[in-house]
Design a protein around this nucleic acid. Structure first.
Lengths: 121, 121, 121, 121
DNA sequence: GTGGTCTAGACCACC
DNA sequence: GTGGTCTAGACCACG
């Protein structure tokens, strides 16, 4: 796992770990059914406390991205059939787009970027 | 200003105010050159501490959306010519797209949504 | 034995096995005096460790649902005459009812549900 | 808050705290809108770590029983209009009833008990 | 003063 | 060996 943590970021570390895993699933780096490293191993590797990684895994589990199995540790297991995004999620997208628009991004640029990200992901 | 604050949200109140202003600028509700309400007035109106509104204004200023002037208060003044979005901003967009993709949103849906948001904004 | 194990559940596997047997006794699927499958056979069938099945059987024995005999394996043998439910058991029922009440279930619904479950069981 | 913790129970402490609050809401001991003690105060009072109480509060928040407000701490705020109980919740009720039936409880006793608990709660 | 996050350990249940 | 829980501290963001 090549995840770059920013310890001075305002984004909590457990959330950065969670975000990395979500991205890694989306871009195919980690396939459905594959295993995540054990909590302790990952914690040692990236130099954070076990509890912090545990918090990230529990969040991912609650969000339906992974399942933790007493026998095998944490494995990627998101439902591919469900279509369910919250209003909150859409609001966040809208806000991001507003920011980019004000930063001077044209509609065409935005669409191209979205396509690129969607396909990379 | 019709902004709905969610005091139990995990998003800090000053950030909710900041987000509202950014959206309002993007969708044209507040035009460039217009003035934001005085800190004290807005604080009273929405029932929060003056410090909180002040923090939101300072953030908006730091981000280049508004400028503050001792005589005129806070006025919208974002540069329309500059094209500058940070890598961080793009990463956040990418993450949002990854989440929506995993939640089952198709590429077509995403593009349509982005167009809609961009034009509304 | 048609028991669906959920390996990613927070309920330990041995407890899921135990729960299944209790339900099966209650709804008459397994009659008093009948035999449970040998530990090894059941373990193979459902794909878990023998220790896990053994733990479930030991728990069932401790709770008085089955008796184990070196010659005959495990047989259902709960006392039908005793009337003995622990305070703990009642507390758990009370908690469940509290949760359902707060989730919006009416008293009538609850009673109908309880009757249905009691008679099915 | 008069909650009796059983430190030797297999039920985690944070879950015992959560259960207590759910019961207290159901039986009216804590009204909607009332405040829960601050995390640190409750932790000191019952002699457990702050993190443990925090975990209980976060769980209650996720389950929709309370909301935490940066200004006022944790307040009871469950939605009274929603009617939503999970299949899992019903399964647990069914299991409890099966156990009580096997322990010799008659249907009439069960119904009376449920009524009593529902009304007390 | 509130909740949120994090650390560096420890013990336990489960498999 | 796995995740889950807990402790006794600490610092931070928020209001």
């Amino acid at each position: 796992m090549l995840l770059n943590l920013d310890f001075s970021s305002s984004i909590p570390i457990y959330m950065q770990i969670r975000n990395y895993v979500v991205m890694a699933i989306a871009n195919g780096e980690i396939a459905n059914g594959e295993k995540l490293p054990p909590i302790r191993a990952l914690a040692d590797e990236i130099g954070v406390n076990m509890m912090t990684v545990s918090k990230a895994y529990q969040l991912l589990k609650r969000e339906g991205y992974i399942s933790t199995d007493r026998r095998n540790g944490a494995t990627i297991s998101y439902r591919t059939d469900k279509v369910a995004y919250s209003q909150e999620s859409l609001d966040e997208l809208k806000l991001k787009i507003a920011e980019l628009k004000l930063a001077g991004m044209s509609e065409v640029e935005l669409i191209n970027l979205c396509k690129k990200f969607y396909e990379e992901d």
